[in-house]
C-alpha cells in the first residue's frame, strides 16, 4: 500500500471513529468508549497527516543565513541618544528637581494605596491560631461527631474516638483524640491531672503540617500521621518519635462532670497544629 493510500486509510478510520463517538454519546455515553474513540479520531488525523507529510513534503535541506541579532553600533547610539534627549528635556532646568521628587512621591503613594484593598482579603491573624473553641466556655463537654457526650465506661481499653467541644463539631482546629490507654502501662503526660481513668486527650492535628493524626497503633501506643509519617508516642506525652514533626501533640486536660460525662477543663495546653512565626508569644 503506498503512502497516499495509508494516509487516506488513517483519515477514514478517524472519520468512522468520530461517527461511532457520536453514536456512543447519543446512547448515553460511556467513558472508556468515548476516550478510546476520541483517541482513534484524533490519532487517525494525526497519523494520516504524518504519513502524508513524510511521503509528499520536500525533505531537502534548506540553509538559511543567521544574521547577528545585535543592532549596529550606530543604531544603538542613535537610540540611546534619542532616549537621552527626551530625558534631558524632562529633567534639565530650574525647579525640575521638585517636579521629579513630587512625581516620584505620588507614584509611590499610589502604589501603596493600591495595596490597601489586599487587606480586605482576610482578617488579622491575631489569636485565632492560638485558641480553639474549647476555651469559649469552660468546662465544656466533649462530644462525638453526631453530638453525643462521652462517658469513660463507653471507651474500651485501646479504643480511640474523635471528639469536639460541644456545639463546635465543625471547628477545624478542635478535633481531639480520646484514647483509653492500657492500665498496665506507664502513662507520662504533661498534665497528669487531666487524665481520667486512663483516658487521655490530644489534639488530632499534626504539629508538622496539620494533617489529622488518625492512625493509632494500639499495641505500641503510637499515633502516625499519614501525610509525612510523623509518629507520636501516646504513652509519652505524645512526643514525636519519628518524622519531621518537632513538637508533641498538645494535650487537652479532662475531667468528668456531675453526670459522669467527660469534659475539658481548659483549652489545649499549646496552640494546635502547624508552627508559625509568633506561636510562642
Amino acid at each position: 500500500m503506498n503512502a497516499d493510500r495509508r494516509a487516506s486509510a488513517c483519515f477514514l478510520i478517524s472519520a468512522i471513529a468520530a461517527v461511532a463517538l457520536g453514536v456512543v454519546y447519543a446512547r448515553g455515553g460511556q467513558a472508556q468508549a468515548e476516550g478510546l474513540l476520541l483517541a482513534v479520531t484524533s490519532g487517525g488525523i494525526g497519523a494520516g497527516i504524518v504519513v502524508w507529510a513524510k511521503a509528499s513534503t520536500p525533505h531537502d535541506e534548506v540553509t538559511e543565513a543567521r544574521h547577528p541579532l545585535a543592532s549596529s553600533e550606530a543604531e544603538v547610539a542613535a537610540f540611546t541618544e534619542a532616549l537621552a534627549a527626551g530625558e534631558r528635556a524632562l529633567v534639565e532646568g530650574k525647579g525640575r528637581r521638585g517636579v521629579l521628587l513630587s512625581a516620584g512621591a505620588a507614584l509611590t503613594a499610589f502604589g501603596a494605596a493600591l495595596l490597601f484593598p489586599i487587606r480586605s482579603l482576610g482578617p488579622r491573624p491575631g489569636r485565632d491560631l492560638k485558641e480553639t473553641p474549647y476555651g469559649d466556655s469552660l468546662p465544656v463537654r466533649v462530644v462525638t461527631e453526631d453530638g453525643r457526650p462521652v462517658r469513660v465506661d463507653d471507651l474500651p481499653v485501646d479504643s480511640l474516638l474523635t471528639v469536639w467541644p460541644e456545639g463546635h463539631v465543625d471547628a477545624a482546629d478542635a478535633p481531639t483524640l480520646l484514647i483509653r490507654t492500657r492500665p498496665d502501662r506507664d502513662l507520662r503526660v504533661e498534665d497528669g491531672a487531666g487524665v481520667v481513668d486512663g483516658v487521655v486527650a490530644y489534639s488530632k492535628l499534626c504539629t508538622h503540617m496539620g494533617c489529622p493524626v488518625g492512625l493509632y497503633q494500639a499495641e505500641e501506643g503510637l499515633l502516625l500521621c499519614p501525610c509525612h509519617q510523623s509518629t507520636f508516642d501516646v504513652y509519652d506525652a505524645a512526643n514525636p518519635v519519628f518524622g519531621p514533626a518537632a513538637r508533641p501533640l498538645p494535650q487537652l486536660p479532662l475531667a468528668t462532670d456531675d453526670d459522669g460525662y467527660l469534659v475539658a477543663t481548659a483549652d489545649f495546653m499549646e496552640p494546635v497544629g502547624p508552627g508559625f512565626w509568633d506561636r510562642g508569644r
Binding site: 471507651l155 481499653v157 485501646d158 479504643s159 480511640l160 494500639a218 499495641e219
Partner: peptide, 13 residues
C-alpha cells in the same frame, strides 16, 4: 476486637 495494632471500636464509637 481491634486485633493486633488496630484500635478497639466499642459501642460508643
Amino acid at each position: 476486637v481491634g486485633p493486633g495494632q488496630m484500635p478497639v471500636f466499642g459501642e460508643e464509637a
